[in-house]
Write a protein that binds this DNA or RNA. Structure first.
Lengths: 212, 212
DNA sequence: GGGTGTGAAGCCGTTCACAGCA
DNA sequence: TGCTGTGAACGGCTTCACACCC
């Protein structure tokens, strides 16, 4: 672990990259921190702080070289080879996510999908093969998979998570609205869609009241 | 706005509720703060702090009455009538979300979906009718919708968001990987799935290195 | 004794402020 | 002059610590 990166900083780096890639396509070669800040809706200091952890150096009159930034971010957050990922649970949400993640970052490849339903097993969804759950450990070992996306119903989530952890998964992106109990050496990122919607509704109402 | 609730507190209240509803189904009538804390993976003090803002009072020997808590949370975060919500963008992700949110909180009803593709308009997805985009303002006004879920491609997101805001939307749950520029009286909650996956991959690797 | 309610302290991410530099 | 790099200050959320109560 070369440098410690906080979770919010990590999220921002991922988003800087998206913007930088876009800018590079426009043949631009330099950016100022305040430009990144403006498009992210944050302060320029924060951008510079984030860039500090990448070790990238800017130039007071030109700003940061986009290629340097992209390399630095890639070196910090990516591996050399594409990272294999698996997805468990091919319900509506699961297969939508398969499609969503396909064709985003080419370095993040969903190499296999898993489901219990026998009618799904063997078929191909969004270009990804579906296997039965009991092939999980073999696939994880064979491809050295470390990250899994979990889209199974809440009731099954903990059990599947246990299987994944035993098989060697150390990172879980969890869409089931349940807390997962995992060992300390496993990272869980939960996206609780219902909670997010309730939160949006709540603040929508609050903002509505506050309007003049 | 009776009490100020921070964003993290709001998320936790939504999650307490899920657990409390589950407990009530098991015929349990009281909980201690440390029980809620254990299942959320947080400290008991934090739970008590959150409960403080609801105005609910506990009993040192019994804990909190579950019905009281549920009422207090509902009063704080819900409206009396079901809240109407619209969803824009019926791609794979959009229709998966329609299905996901249907049958979750009955008080949050997705009353209509919208898309530009003429072959989708007029059809029914997951029990929800799909309308063309130009009917957005009429529907928002007619049903007094304040919250919208945005699942359109990045390129279209800002334009659609502008339309929504003009029509009176004050809360946006955005799945497009772009920052949205909106007036200060509009709340935006963005779920950046690609960033979340990158984040998970990054910390998965870090945790993997740190294991003994 | 064990749990609640809450002032006070702590922590960590963000912002400020400014020296250094092109 | 205007931007970068960064120590110092700030602020808000979380945790500590403890009085009070059953």
């Amino acid at each position: 672990m070369p440098v410690a990166i906080s979770k919010p900083a990590m999220e921002r780096l991922s988003q800087y990259r998206r913007y930088l890639l876009h800018e590079r396509q426009q043949k631009r070669t330099f950016v100022f921190s305040h430009q990144l800040a403006a498009m992210m809706g944050i302060t320029a200091s924060l951008v510079r702080r984030d860039i500090m952890v990448t070790g990238c150096m800017g130039n007071p009159s030109k700003g940061y070289r986009i290629d340097d930034l992209l390399d630095a971010i890639a070196q910090l957050v990516d591996t050399e080879e594409p990272t294999p990922i698996i997805l468990v649970g091919l319900g509506k949400l699961g297969s939508a996510l398969l499609g969503f993640f396909r064709s985003r970052r080419p370095n993040l490849r969903i190499v296999a999908a898993f489901d219990t339903h026998t009618d799904k097993v063997g078929r191909v969804y969004q270009g990804t093969h579906c296997y039965p759950l009991d092939e999980l450990p073999a696939t994880i070992h064979a491809q050295q998979v470390k990250t899994a996306i979990l889209c199974v119903p809440s009731e099954a989530a903990q059990e599947v998570a246990d299987t994944l952890v035993v098989a060697g998964i150390t990172g879980l992106l969890n869409f089931a609205p349940t807390r997962l109990y995992v060992p300390a050496n496993v990272y869980v990122e939960s996206i609780d869609l219902t909670t997010m919607l309730e939160k949006t509704v709540f603040f929508a109402r609050q903002h509505d009241c506050a309007r003049d």
